[in-house]
Design a protein around this nucleic acid. Structure first.
Length: 484
RNA sequence: CGGGGCGUAGCGCAGUUUGGUUAGCGCGCACGGUUUGGGACCGUGAGGUCCCCGGUUCAAAUCCGGGCGCCCCGACCA
């Protein structure tokens, strides 16, 4: 970890900064097993905020939670050709149980399409059983070569939705509905601007007809896929015999979808909003929205100060604001200011003897550094003041992130040299792209990066343009950028 | 899986080149006191299989051989 005081400045070394922030803000710690992490209480509270934000939206759109087993029979994975090809390099396999070699090895789930497909085949008989709209909150394991706290760990937490529908149209509608839901969560709760788009065939989920994703720009301009939604077509339905009888008493294969957001979202929040001093949490996600730091010089001042602190704490808590009183008596106020700034708390409230006398408090906002972000306000009407301040911080953080992102998006047509300049300087290039494997490979060879997505919101809808690589007429533009 | 770096107290490191007292520093921790509106100070104290195994030597944190682990950068991925 970095220096004795604070994290490595973000501007100095981005990846070290990230590692420092995650550890020093006590979001996560390294585990004794390579590539695994311990999610600490403060980090887990953030995850709970992600979970409740998404879960509420899932329920509102008619989904229910369920839980499927961790272990999947090896043969299941093999039933969908693309799927097994995509995942086999990163599987953890259990071959011994109870001291005996297993007849059939068990896969520790890397994702649950197969075992859920098996269950759906059992459950679904008729069009009357459709749609099936199930989500599960679970851990999954993928044997990763290179890992990073939250961004890529061998075991991670996520939600995976799995739905089955009667028609392609319904499945596609579901896939898109979830993509919208993810974007809504990212933008409105996590204050992360995202680009909704379709993945190229090369980048789609192993076994999907096509995949959509929300792509976000991190503070170092690299892209991060923060959520994915897949239209699986009938691929898994055919592999697992998920069939139903339609109104005409004819047997049909279902159309299925799957979609997921993982603990990686926490990495995104850190990397999008953090600054040189550490974490900055959007108020809607912050486990602690307001931290109260009591200030006193002499023992005689403790009593009246703490009395005011407790009173304000109760008022804020009753108003539904997540408030914490830092009453540690072995740390100075100055230390606490820095500590909570590093941990990203949006608002700091100071109560000292002067405030007790004058009926005021000092309020400091995390998104505006130094004195500029500090103001003295009356205790009267504090709930309204803080509510407004939290809203303003939330909006400001989204605005800052959006401005930063937009200033690094560049459109380029038909000029491969210019395209190279953009992506090599870290920007995102939006360009006509035919989507062919050969063209994507060429870019990968030249610039060590692949397409992020074809944005759903196309800048020139209905028009054509020359693919940036082969020059053939392409019908859509895609983003290219270095990614995590 | 390639390239680089690192492994010495809870954390960050010095010491290793050139083997030699009782292995040291800062932070943190415990206790006492003074402090407290932007990272306090003084005093006392606790804390070590120097990553592991083997070898060389009168003597190894230090030299030699082998192994393990972690971090960073690339190839592959939520």
């Amino acid at each position: 970890m970095a220096s004795e005081k604070g994290v490595t400045p973000r501007s100095e070394d981005y990846s070290r900064w990230y590692t420092d922030v995650v550890q020093m803000a006590r979001l996560a710690d390294y585990a004794p097993v390579r590539g695994c992490m311990i999610i600490l209480p403060y980090g887990y509270e953030l995850w709970e905020a992600v979970r409740s934000g998404l879960d509420r939206r899932f329920k509102e759109t008619g989904h229910q939670n369920a839980y499927f087993p961790l272990f999947i029979p090896e043969s299941f994975l093999k039933k969908e050709a693309e799927h097994v090809e995509g995942f086999s390099p990163e599987l953890a396999v259990v071959t011994i149980g109870g001291g005996k070699e297993l007849e059939e090895p068990l896969i520790v789930r890397p994702t649950s399409e197969t075992i859920i497909g098996w269950a759906y085949a059992k459950w679904i008989q008729s069009y009357r059983d459709l749609p099936v709209l199930i989500n599960q909150w679970a851990n999954v394991v993928r044997w990763e070569m290179r890992t990073r706290l939250f961004l890529r760990t061998m075991e991670f937490l996520w939600q995976e939705g799995h739905t089955a529908h009667a028609t392609y149209e319904e499945a596609e509608e579901e896939t898109r509905r979830i993509l919208d839901l993810y974007a809504d969560f990212a933008v409105n709760d996590a204050a992360i601007p995202v680009i909704k788009g379709r993945k190229s065939n090369q980048e789609k989920f192993a076994g999907a007809l096509h995949s959509y994703a929300i792509e976000a720009m991190m503070g170092d301009k690299r892209a991060l896929q923060a959520g994915t939604s897949h239209n699986l077509g009938q691929n898994f339905a055919k592999a697992f015999n998920i069939q139903y009888l339609d109104v005409n008493n004819e047997l049909q294969y279902c159309w299925t979808t799957s979609w997921g957001v993982s603990t990686r979202m926490i990495g995104a929040i850190v990397m999008v909003h953090g600054d040189d001093k550490g974490l900055r949490l959007p108020p809607r996600m912050a486990p602690i929205q307001v931290v109260i730091v009591p200030i006193y010089r002499q023992d005689a001042e403790i009593e009246p100060v703490m009395e005011t602190v407790r009173r304000l704490q109760a008022i804020l808590k009753d108003a539904g604001i997540r408030v914490h009183v830092d009453d540690r008596d072995d740390q100075t106020p100055g230390f606490k200011f820095n500590d909570w700034e590093m941990r990203g708390v949006p608002v700091r409230l100071e109560v000292g003897p002067r405030d007790v006398q004058q009926g005021t408090v000092a309020l400091a906002r995390r998104d505006v550094p130094g004195k500029a972000g500090k103001q003295f306000v009356p205790q009267a009407g504090l709930v309204e003041t803080i509510r407004a301040l939290l809203e303003d911080i939330q909006a400001n953080m989204l605005r800052q992130a959006t401005e930063f992102r937009d200033s690094n998006l560049f459109e380029v047509a038909g000029d491969y040299g210019r395209f190279g300049e953009i992506v090599e300087s870290g920007g995102w290039a939006l360009t006509w792209f035919c989507g062919d494997r050969a063209c994507e490979e060429k870019i990968k060879e030249d610039h060590q990066l692949v397409s992020r997505c074809f944005p759903l919101d196309q800048p020139h809808p209905g028009e054509h343009g020359p693919c940036i690589v082969c020059g053939e007429q392409a019908t859509a533009m895609a983003y290219f950028a270095r990614a995590y």
